Computed example of a mutant assay.
Amino acid sequence: MVSPDSPDSPDPRPADATGRVVSVNVGRRTPQPYTSADATAIDKHATASVEVRDPGPKHGGLGSGVVGDEIGDPRHHGGRLQAVYAYPREDQLWWAERIGRPIAAGEFGENLTIEGIDATHALVGEVWRIGTAVLRVEVPRIPCRTFAGHMDERGWVKRFTEAGRTGAYLSVTVPGRITTGDVVDVERPDHDIDLLTLFRAFTGDLDATRRVVEANVVDAEVQADLVDTLRRRAG
């Protein structure tokens, strides 16, 4: 039986949902010792409001989709599909219980700390209307060595991967301003490919990969990468 707090539990949300922004966060580049990258901006701190925009491509674009937010490793972070990162406060509290210490809003590197929205089961292509901006759910977060070093928790990458509580990367379809306390209005598309399924596909689950490829609801770049994965691994 699936545990009640497992991300693999059935999604209880209605077709559309409403949440709230509890913190808006930006980061500045600082030196980091965790990887070959010179800097990181993972440690983000609260601000009253931000402007969001489409930053363009990962390579050669503006980096973050949040004006004033910096990217430490532009090879792996930022760009259109990772313009804004949102993480549920409920999931941070879940983690805090397990690691035995508080987790501050922004500590996971999220631009938007949200509540009332289940990012684990957010559907690819969900529309989030926040303030005057419109965002689109694109991909889950893949944990990396910088994240692990920042958290300073043994086995963090493995633990985060097993939990599947990844948060949501969003693109910006309509630029605008997002302010702490803003309502998050969610419109869900008519399919069942959620971020957890996509995350499992990204982390080696071929059944999940087939499901995502067959649904053909992810961004064209992501679709092409997953098709290539199936071709190489499944024959």
Rank of each mutant, 00 (worst) to 15 (best):
Val67Pro: 09
Arg29Leu: 05
Glu162Pro: 12
Thr173Asp: 15
Val186Ser: 10
Thr120Ile: 11
Pro175Gly: 02
Leu81Asp: 14
Arg80Trp: 12
Gly167Cys: 08
Glu107Val: 07
Ile42Ser: 10
Glu70Arg: 05
Val222Phe: 04
Glu126Lys: 05
His76Pro: 05
Ile99Thr: 10
Pro10Tyr: 01
Gly149Ser: 02
Arg141Lys: 09
Cys144Lys: 03
Asp69Ile: 01
Val2Ala: 10
Val124Leu: 06
Arg129Leu: 01
Val186Glu: 07
Ser23Pro: 08
Glu153Leu: 14
Asp152Ser: 13
Asp182Met: 00
Asp69Gly: 03
Arg29Tyr: 11
Lys44Ser: 04
Phe160Ile: 05
Asp194Pro: 07
His121Cys: 11
Tyr34Val: 11
Val183His: 10
Phe147Cys: 12
Val227Met: 11
Gly61Ala: 06
Ser171Ala: 15
Trp94Arg: 07
Tyr87Ile: 05
Val183Glu: 15
Tyr34Glu: 11
Trp94Gly: 00
Thr161Leu: 13
Val172Leu: 04
Trp95Gly: 03
Leu226Ala: 01
Arg29Ala: 14
Ile103Pro: 03
Lys158Gln: 15
Phe160Asp: 10
Thr47Ala: 13
Ile71Thr: 09
Leu93Gly: 08
Pro175Leu: 02
Ile42Tyr: 10
Pro143His: 09
Gly116Asp: 07
Pro12Met: 02
Val22Ala: 08
